[in-house]
Amino acid sequence: MNIFRLAGDMTHLLSIIVLLLKMNATRSCRGVSLKTQELYAVVFVCRYLDLFTNFISLYNTVMKLIFLASTFTIIYWMRFHKVIRVTYDREQDTFRYQFLVLPCLVLAMVLNSEFTVMEVLWTFSIYLEAVAILPQLVLLQRTNNIDNLTGNYVFLLGSYRALYILNWIYRFMTEPNYRQYLVWISGIVQTIVYIDFFYYYIKSWRNNEKLSLPA
């Protein structure tokens, strides 16, 4: 574990904590995409199946459990919490799951390192994670006044991806046989998805303005 990887994981964790705190404090999930959260739940479930088959480290196991539990908590609040569910922008959050899930599933069946159930699902989770933020970005674009916390959530998620790229570069230079092309390419695609958002986020921060994304 290198410093970039740890910083990436902590940023990822922080992004989810920011979202949970925001929803809990304001009793509102305005501007949050349930579709993105449910896609993340699918990503985590498919990727963390190895919790049952393979022990890597206590850190690894605990983090996986935290990501699963926190994502399901967010989904539960957005769907069933008495107060929070009323604030969900159902009409705006219209991205269709199948546009993301089906291509990723097909790609994972074709492009994987081993054609087994576990490996295909793991690869599927890598591809799906790369695009799972799209419903959230579309929803942000439709929200006129993006509140700070939702903006920060997406910014932290993007930062986590950027730190993972640094982690891969570091590992590539220090570990002799370290190669994972599918993960790298998906990770780079995933980071590119955020670039446009980063541009407007930093611009609004420098100008001290509220964040809004042009349609």
């Binding site: 990887r5 190895d50 393979n54 890597i56 480290s57 990501f67 993972y164 994972q180």
Partner: peptide, 10 residues
């Protein structure tokens, strides 16, 4: 062992 190393990321 290599397989496990590959999948140690979250």
């Amino acid at each position: 062992k290599e397989e496990a190393e590959e999948k140690d990321e979250l």
